[in-house]
Simulated scan of single mutants.
Amino acid sequence: MPNPAISIQLWTVRDELAADLDGTLAKLASIGFTHVEAFGFVSRADELSAAFARHGITSPTGHASLASGTENPFDSSIAVPAPAEVFAAAQKLGMTTVFDPFVAADRWESVEEIAKTADALNGAARIGADYGVSVGYHNHNQEFLTKINGRFPLEIFAELLDPAVSLELDLYWASAGGADVATLVERLGDKVTALHIKDGTLEPLPSLGALPTDQVPAGHGVVALTAALDAATHAGFAIIEFDAYSGDIWQGVQTGYEFLAARGLV
């Protein structure tokens, strides 16, 4: 299978986007990005669609809550849009897959709770099919912090998903949870259709609820990005992301792009 296409999760440059949407997209395009992964797109699909078109950018994937009751897991006052609204906006933007970006930690502690999340995404996928948009799930570290019958909760979850529902494996957060990411990618096989390319020192070990302080440009940390990419024979996208970065964010993004481009990805 061909190498995955390079993309970037726009959360990486959220402050820059808020200050100057067109200027930020122009800078991404100048680095070489032709794909991005949008967030918060449901209420501004028209605006984003026009802006992406102006800069020769597409958003084949996006993040939106589909299995949670709140858009922001740390602010329960922000309600999620209905799935039909999510998929209508995704369709307008030309997305092929919407990944749910977060399901709270207490929903990964038992098979029963894991099954509820799988059922929610399976149900959302049936709605998305009417719009030509598929569904997936993006992990953090809570899907790896415990084991159930000797297995990571994410692996149990993967087996409960309908064939049409996929995974976007965040390599940094999986590593922070204790997974050997290359081996994990191999075990998950064709369920992994996208990777978040994110690196760090894992010192201190990051936890949810606080921005990590250890993230570094791709290829400069301890996350086994190269081995995971080699194992990800079914992934369509390699998506650069920083949750937080203490250095120059544009230099970090440029370094990440060059790391992937050096592997022959475009």
Rank of each mutant, 00 (worst) to 15 (best):
E16V: 11
Q9D: 00
S30H: 11
A82P: 05
K27R: 13
A18T: 13
I57V: 10
A64E: 00
S110T: 15
S77E: 00
M95G: 11
T61W: 08
A89W: 05
P73F: 00
S30C: 09
A104W: 14
I31E: 14
A105S: 15
G23N: 10
L25W: 00
P101D: 09
P60N: 09
R44A: 04
L48D: 02
S77Q: 00
I78S: 02
G32Y: 07
S77D: 02
R107L: 11
D100Q: 11
T34E: 15
T96A: 15
S65I: 03
H35I: 15
V13M: 07
W108A: 13
T24E: 03
T97E: 05
H35L: 10
D75Q: 00
A45D: 01
R107E: 06
A26V: 05
I57E: 02
L17A: 02
L66S: 02
T34L: 10
F87I: 03
A105F: 09
H55D: 07
V103R: 14
K92F: 03
I31L: 14
V86Q: 08
S59E: 07
G56K: 12
G40H: 00
F39Y: 10
D15G: 11
L10K: 09
A67S: 12
T24M: 02
V42R: 00
T34N: 13
A84H: 12
P101N: 04
F33G: 10
E16F: 13
F33V: 12
R14W: 06
F74W: 12
T70V: 03
A67Y: 03
